[in-house]
Design a protein around this nucleic acid. Sequence first.
DNA 1: TTGAAAATATTGAATATTCAACAATTGAAG
DNA 2: CTTCAATTGTTGAATATTCAATATTTTCAA
Lengths: 147, 147
Amino acid sequence: MAKPSKENTPITEHLAYLLAQANREINRQLELRLSKEGVPVEQWRILKVLSDGNGHSMGELADAVLLNHPTLTKMIDRMVSDTLVYRVQDPNDRRKVLMFISDRGKVLSRKLNSLAVDQEEHILESYGDKSTSELKRLLESLIDSSN
Amino acid sequence: MAKPSKENTPITEHLAYLLAQANREINRQLELRLSKEGVPVEQWRILKVLSDGNGHSMGELADAVLLNHPTLTKMIDRMVSDTLVYRVQDPNDRRKVLMFISDRGKVLSRKLNSLAVDQEEHILESYGDKSTSELKRLLESLIDSSN
DNA sequence: TTGAAAATATTGAATATTCAACAATTGAAG
DNA sequence: CTTCAATTGTTGAATATTCAATATTTTCAA
């Protein structure tokens, strides 16, 4: 019996493709909601991370919000112009810049969170509680196993 | 007892974020392998879809490979220059353009598939057979429920 | 049959992202 | 101490993506 070859697997069966497709779709939906406040998904992430009130360096932020450094720098430039966040030089390591959320940023962050929560709840409804938490668990473990 | 508020959920617990993170990581790994042939992930997808030998319209292709139309048009322009694919006007509907894979494209496609299969096997090893198929199942069903 | 609306693909301008080079600071070896 | 390598963040040029406008063809209603 011939050993089953994976060479002709349709693209829709590749994990990489399924992840890209699911991510694209969920992201599109989230984008749609956040557009009510005229804010891209990445800015929601940035505000969410910073809303712990602590200072976060650019490198740390870039990791957390899944952007590479130059892209983050330029996005932060815009957010500083919009007075949503501000930069402070790290006194302990003057190479670093610490980012903080402003009061205006906090107000916006609350609105965005509520839009994001809306979406999560919408997913829970149409996709189910069980599937959602199981999917989250598997994704976390995939991410873990990739490091 | 206070009703649990989701407003302060850390970003790492949002499905949208987990999907983005997992997708980024898996995509990065795939990119790394395909870079051996100097080809971006999207071109692998295009070649894979076209390797059924049939003609596919630009719209159909754009859906299948998760690119929007103008981006696809420009990527196809490059691939035509590299003689990996070619355009034919659809005789039944002259608004449409049918894309076909060339012989050179087929040769490249085989190499790319083997690199992609390598990755899937690597994932199976580190992440496990069971988890992988379960994750795929859940992703498919999430995508379904989003349409 | 005609004319307006829809579908399909491309183009060019505006934006955004990425890559490589740079500047500043820190760490660490000699 | 001094010097050289590593770390951190930004910049500018090169690329890539997106949005809006366009051209072409088809569909379909009047």
